[in-house]
């Protein structure tokens, strides 16, 4: 099952937005181990916006609090492009997000690979 899931994720181009280097690196490694192409990771709003606008993407994993603000504008860009995205956050209560983004899936740190994988399968592949 795990293998099936991993295979299914192969070739997805995923934008990673996370301002902590360590977390971003391990997230990147995790995704790459499943065969995904990681776009980024981007630590700041500015960089992430640029990537979200310009790159060919399958979806995004967004840390809510990043350098320069929140990732709400990035989520909005992805949303406008019709792309799926999930938030990861250390916050338990969603007080920073605009209402329309509250509907999006949120993962709480620390993230385990099993959870991340199943969420990606569900959200990005629609299974």
């Amino acid at each position: 099952m795990e293998a099936a899931g991993s295979r299914a994720l192969k070739g997805l181009r995923i934008l990673v937005v996370e301002d902590n280097f360590m977390i971003a690196s391990s997230l990147k490694r995790m995704l790459e181990s499943w065969g995904c192409d990681v776009v980024g990771p981007a630590p700041s709003v500015e960089e992430a916006e640029q990537l979200a606008d310009q790159c060919d993407l399958s979806g995004g994993i967004l840390d809510i609090n990043i350098r320069g603000g929140t990732s709400a504008p990035i989520a909005e860009r992805l949303h406008n492009r019709g792309l799926p995205y999930i938030f990861i956050t250390g916050y338990s209560s969603p007080h920073l997000l605009p209402d329309e983004l509250l509907k999006a899936q949120r993962l709480h740190k620390p993230i385990t690979d099993a959870v991340l994988r199943s969420v990606l399968v569900e959200k990005f592949l629609g299974r």
Partner: peptide, 17 residues
């Protein structure tokens, strides 16, 4: 809450790396 969770995530990443 945020910081504790972020730290745990960092610690996990350090451990893994």
């Amino acid at each position: 809450d945020h910081r504790v969770k972020n730290n745990l995530a960092t610690v996990l990443s350090i451990a893994e790396s």
